[in-house]
Design a protein around this nucleic acid. Structure first.
Lengths: 125, 125
DNA sequence: TGCTAAGTTCGAGAAAACTCGTACAAGGAG
DNA sequence: CTCCTTGTACGAGTTTTCTCGAACTTAGCA
């Protein structure tokens, strides 16, 4: 069923059971294109989603895995923006809060969008 | 050649020669995904692009054709945001300034993006 | 019992975007 | 010329977003 829903290049990695509950996030039916676009209008957030897509075979990545040179409170802000727009799902593992892209959900509602993000390259200026 | 570049459902309507020069706009190579996303993060602008796509067989549409109940200065603001992001091209015809989506350019740089906008429906709240 | 590490919450300052009124420019019809 | 229409430019007020420091929370470990 999962593959039938998302025939594109992005397929969710199957997850082991008994995971911690996801943090609050919008339901698939409540995803809004304008909100998603706004979340993806920031270069740092584009980079977060891009790298989550490229290295998605690894398990969910904690906030510090990206190596951004920003204060932790700034990162919290941007990850929350992505989660509240519905682009990523976050779960708490002990101290870490790990994230992954909601590939199936986004692909169903906005097919092809993640491919654009995956092929994005950060501006070099 | 044009069809080879853009095999998707969006193909530019051929334009008659001797058109007025377009207003200043970014070159195709300078289109930035984050800028385009920011331009499409506003519901009114999404609606503008959507309706330009749906009724693109008609000729370019002037600002007032949409019938938005907003001050003219607000509309100027939003149309300029779309043009500066590279989503629309604007030409001056006498008094009117007519707009159309840069379908080929966007489709080449961000394939599939316009399909998402075309199938968007404005929020009903 | 502390100590460290990951990340949050709060709040404030700065920057950007949105909205709109007003004044202005310029084409077209009479 | 005069009036009407389409739309711009400017500027101010408001709202949103971004950014970051400081204090706090919690898990794991020695």
């Amino acid at each position: 069923m999962r593959q039938a829903v998302s025939p594109g290049p992005f397929v969710d990695v199957p997850e082991p059971p008994d995971l911690p509950d996801p943090l609050p996030e919008p339901d698939v039916a409540d995803l809004r294109l304008d909100r998603v676009m706004a979340a993806l209008s920031d270069p740092l957030r584009l980079e977060i989603v891009r790298r989550l897509l490229l290295e998605r075979q690894e398990f969910d990545h904690p906030c510090g895995w990206f190596g951004f040179d920003r204060p932790k409170s700034s990162l919290t802000h941007h990850f929350r923006a992505l989660r509240e727009a519905g682009l990523i799902r976050q779960r708490q593992y002990g101290l870490e809060r790990r994230s992954h892209v909601r590939v199936d959900d986004i692909e169903v509602r906005f097919p092809g969008l993640l491919a654009l993000v995956a092929s994005w390259t950060p501006p070099d200026d």
